[in-house]
């Protein structure tokens, strides 16, 4: 069963609808014990790192997530879901799950004409092949809404990059975990392609 983590962090219904569109039946999951039986996990989220971490811990989802990742279960983190999977976020100075080595930083831009949050469609340029990014070409654009970005410690984890004054990691992979800073569920055909790839992925790279 594919489970979508439900921890009161944003619009889960749109993720479920997009999964359905690519033939992936997914259920919401707000309980650590249920999560331990997942065959595939989607970890979405919008909102703030501090409250997200509290909510995950309260439901026992944090420990269960660590366990399924150790078993090699494919996990897709989206936006805040990805961000709280690193070690630390500058947002509310929050220690986060530590599933992927690295930190999350706030956009601190010099150009005054660039707005934060980074919101809208931007190019995602793959820099390392990965089954979930198959068929995504340089120049394909995805929908972003975020004020913080991931800075993975290991360069090999960076699967794709995006430019917003400076370049940042817009897709990150670590063992059976793949995370996107953008929202595939709101990114039209290319977003659905990525979800379909994830639905077919066995967690191996």
């Amino acid at each position: 069963m594919t489970l979508i983590l439900d921890y009161e962090a944003g619009n889960l219904a749109s993720v479920k609808r997009a999964c359905k569109e690519v033939g992936l039946d997914a259920e919401f999951c707000a309980d650590g014990d249920q999560l331990r039986h997942a065959e595939r996990v989607i970890f979405p989220g919008v909102g703030a790192a501090g409250s997200a971490m509290r909510s995950l811990a309260h439901r026992g989802l944090d420990e269960a997530l660590r366990e399924v990742i150790l078993r090699g279960v494919p996990v897709l983190g989206i936006c805040l879901g990805l961000q709280v999977s690193l070690d630390h976020s500058e947002e509310n100075d929050t220690p986060t799950l530590g599933l992927i080595p690295g930190r999350v930083r706030r956009f601190n831009l010099d150009r005054t004409d660039l707005k934060v949050p980074h919101m809208g469609w931007n190019e995602v340029v793959p820099c390392r092949p990965h089954p979930v990014l198959a068929g995504i070409d340089p120049g394909d654009e995805f929908y972003f809404v975020h004020a913080y970005y991931t800075d993975p410690k290991v360069a090999d984890c960076v699967l794709a990059r995006t430019e917003y004054e400076h370049s940042f990691a817009s897709a990150v992979g670590y063992n059976s975990y793949i995370g996107t800073q953008f929202h595939p569920e709101k990114s039209g055909r290319v977003g659905l392609r990525l979800l379909a790839n994830f639905a077919a992925w066995d967690g191996q790279c």
Binding site: A13, S14, R17, A18, K20, E21, K186, S187, G188, G191
Partner: peptide, 8 residues
């Protein structure tokens, strides 16, 4: 609309 249109 939301179940057929995958943009914001």
């Amino acid at each position: 609309v939301a179940s057929q249109v995958f943009i914001p």
